[in-house]
Design a protein around this nucleic acid. Sequence first.
DNA 1: TACGGGCGGGG
DNA 2: GTGTACGCCCGTA
Length: 822
Amino acid sequence: MAGKIQFYLLDLTYKIISDKAQICIFGKTPENERVMLLDPEFRPYFYVIPKKSTSAVIEKLKNLKVEKRDIIASVTSTEIVKKRYMGEEVEAIKVYANLPKSVPALANEAKKWDIVRFCNEYDILFTRKYLIDNNLVPMTLHEADAEEIQQGFRISTYNISGISQVGGDYLENQRILAFDIETYHPGGKIDSAKNPVIMISFYSKGFRKVITYKKFRTKHDYIEFVDDEPHLLERFKEIIERFKPDIITGYNSDSFDFPYLRARAKKYRIKLNIGIDSKDIKFGRGIYPSAQINGIVHIDIFQFIRRNIGQSLKTDSYKLDLVAQEILGEKKIDVDIENLAESWRKGTGLEHYAEYNLNDSKLVYDLCDRFMPNIIEFTKLTGITAFDVIRMGFSQIVEAYLLKQAPKFNIIAPNKPGHDEIKQRRMATYHGAFVYQPTPGLYKDIIVFDFRSLYPTIISSHNIGPGTLNCSCCKDETEFAPTDKGKYWFCKKRKGFIPTIIDDVITRRMRIKEIIKKDKKNKDKAADILLDARQYSLKIMGNSFYGYMGFFGARWYSIECARSITAYGRYYITKVIDQAKKEGFNVIYSDTDSIFMTLDRKTRKEVETFGDKINTELPGIMELELEGFFPSGIFVHAKVGPYGAKKKYALLSEDGKIKITGFETVRSNWSDIAKEVQEEVLRIILKENDKEKAFQYVQTVIKRLNDRKVALDKVMMHTKLTKEIDEYESIGPHVAIAKKMQAKGIDVAPGMIIKYIIGKGKGRIRDRAKFPSECEEGDYDPEYYINNQVIPAIDKIFEVIGYSKSEILMAEDQKDLKSFFG
DNA sequence: TACGGGCGGGG
DNA sequence: GTGTACGCCCGTA
C-alpha cells in the first residue's frame, strides 16, 4: 500500500541491502506505532576541489578504484558545483561513491594527486549527512511517501522517499523507562565475569518493578521473584519489549549497567536482542564506551549531565546521590552498599536493597524527565540524534551545529585536523583573558558582576571568524583587534558565517527570554520549562564558539580568531574596572568576564545603579549582570597560563553554603584526614572569620598526626586495581601491596580496591606501603601524611592568609621546642 | 622531565 | 562504522 506516512524520527542507521546502502530510520507514528523506514535514495559522496583543470580531475576520478578490506571502492558519478570554502568562491566536484565505506578510501587516494587541491567532507558520517542534506531534525515529526514491505523484522517496515520535516512538533510525553542493576560484589570487587546481577529495577510514570531471585517476605507488590540469574536476564528483556519505551535511561549505563548485563548474558548464551528490529545492543568501544539499541533511544543521563549541565552545577562530583540532591532535592536511600554482598549471601535485609534499587531508578527517571527538554533542544539545534547529542562535548555540539548550517550558506566544511596538524595546533599558545590579581586574603561583603555572554557578543559585533579574517577587501581598514601578537582585522563588508550563526543564536535566545518574561504573568509552568531549556541550550551553544575556534580538534579552527576574541575581552573588562574605580569601588579581583568588588560603605542600591550605568554605555547587546552578594570569601593567587588564569577562590553565599572554585579537589583516593582538614579549614575561615583558629586547628591535626593519634581509618589510602598484577609495568604502592597479598595466597583481581597505609621508613613510597592488618593504631608515617596529604590540601588556603608552608610546619617544631624548654 | 597509570560514574 | 577517542593528577624511572 503506497501513501504518506508520518512519524517522529527517533534514531537511524544504515544497512547494506544488495550492495547498496539504505538509510534505516526508527520512528514512532503519532498513533504510537513503532516503525522502521528504509530510504534507498540517498547516496554517499564527498567533495574534491581541483587545483586548475576540473575536467582532468573528473576523468581521473571516473577510473578510480580502491580495494579496502572486503570491498572495492569506486566512483559512481560526479557533478560540478559552485561552493564557498574558507571565505573563498570555489569550483568543486561532488563525487558519489558506491558505498559509504568507499568514501574515505577514495578521498584518501584522490588527496595524493597533484591536480587536486583539497578533498572535503569525507569524514562526516553517512547518516549524519542524510539528516543535514534533507534538513531533518530527530525527535520531531516527519513525513514521507511510503510503501509497506515485508522484511521479516517484527515491526512494520516501509520503503520511503521524499522525506521532510513537518513543522516543529516534537515527540511529547515520551515513554521513558529508567532502569538500574545491583550486582553481587564481595570485597568491593566488581567483576562481571564472576559475580552475578542480583536485582534489576525499572521505573516510569505509573510503573514500578524490581526483579530479583532470592525470595523474601515483602509488603511491596512491585517486587517480582524469578528462579535465577538467567531468568532475571530474560525477564529484563521481556519487560523492555512489553513496555515499548521510546527512551531507556540509566546512570552510567553506557559504562556499567549495559556492559555488565552483556557479560552476564554472554555467560548464559542469552541474546540481548532488545532492538525493535530484534537486533542486539551495539556496544561502542573506545575511551567512552556506549550502548546503542536500535529503535530505543538509550540516554545515559550521567553522560549528559557531566558534559552539558556539569558546569552550571555546584557539585564537582557527579555521583547520583549528589546530582539528585542538587537538581531534584532528593537523596538516594541510605544503605551501605558494601554490605549488599553479605546480605545477599545471608538472604537478610534484601527488601531494603530492593527499595534502594527502585529509588535509584526513580531518581534516574526524574533526572531524565527533567532534562528531556534540554536534550530535545540540543537535538533540534544541531539536527543530530538524541543518542549522539548527549554523548558530545561542547565543541562537538558547536561543530554539529555548524555542519548543519554550512550547506545553507553553500559552504564546504573544512576537514578535521590530522595527527601532525593537531600536534602543531597544540603547541600554539595565545594570550588569554584579563586577570586582575587579588590581594590574597579574606574579604567581607563581596559583590560579583559578570558580562553576560562576553565572547559571543564580541564575535558578533566584531564579525570574527576564519572566513572574515584578514580579508583582502578591507586591507586598508585601520581597526585592528587589540591583540599583542599579530595584526588581525575582520571584514567590514560581508558578514561572516560564524558571526551570522552566533548572531542568530544570541537573538533567538533574547527573544525567548523576552517571552519568558511576558509569560511570567501567565504562569504556564510547562511552557516555561521548555522555553528555559531552549534559552539554556542557546546560551551553552553561544558560549562555546570561542572555545571551539581555539580548540585543536576543530574543523573551523582559527587561533587568530581566538586571539582576537580574548583581546577584545580584555579591552572591555578593563574598561569596566577603570569605571568602577573611578566611582570609588574597591575592585578586589577580576577574571575574564567577572568582577569582584567589596561593598564597604556603599549600599546595594548604589551597586545596582553602577551596573545600570555601565549597561547604558556598553555597545549593542553586551551586558553586565549583577551575579550576587557574598558575605565572605577567600582568594588565592592564580597562576597565569596560556588560556588565562584559573579562578581560585571559595565564597560563602548568603544561604550559608561554601562554594569552592579552582582548588585542587581532594580526590576520592586521598585519605580521609586530608579531606576533613580542607573542609574544616574553609569552614573556620569563611564562617567564623578566624585565621588564627584555622591555623591552630591545622597545628592540632599535625600534632595528632605526629603523636600517632589519628585513627588508621583516616590515614587509609585506597586505590583500585585496573588490570592483572603481571600486566603492570610500573609498580605503584597499590600494586606492591597487591603483590604482597597475592604472595599470601589472597586472590587479587582487577576491580579490587587495595587498601594500604604508608608506613615509616626511607625510600620509595611503594616500599613503605603496608597492609592495613599489619598495622596497629598509630602505625603510619606522620611525615608522609603531613607533607603529601594534609599540607597539599590546605597550603594554598594558608598561603593567601599569610602562612607559608614552612610556617605551618615550623610552628609545630617551635611548639615542640617551647614545650621542651618550658 | 617524560611517561605510565588511575580516576571519573557504577556495585 | 565516511570508525580508533578525555583531561587531569600522581608517582616512578
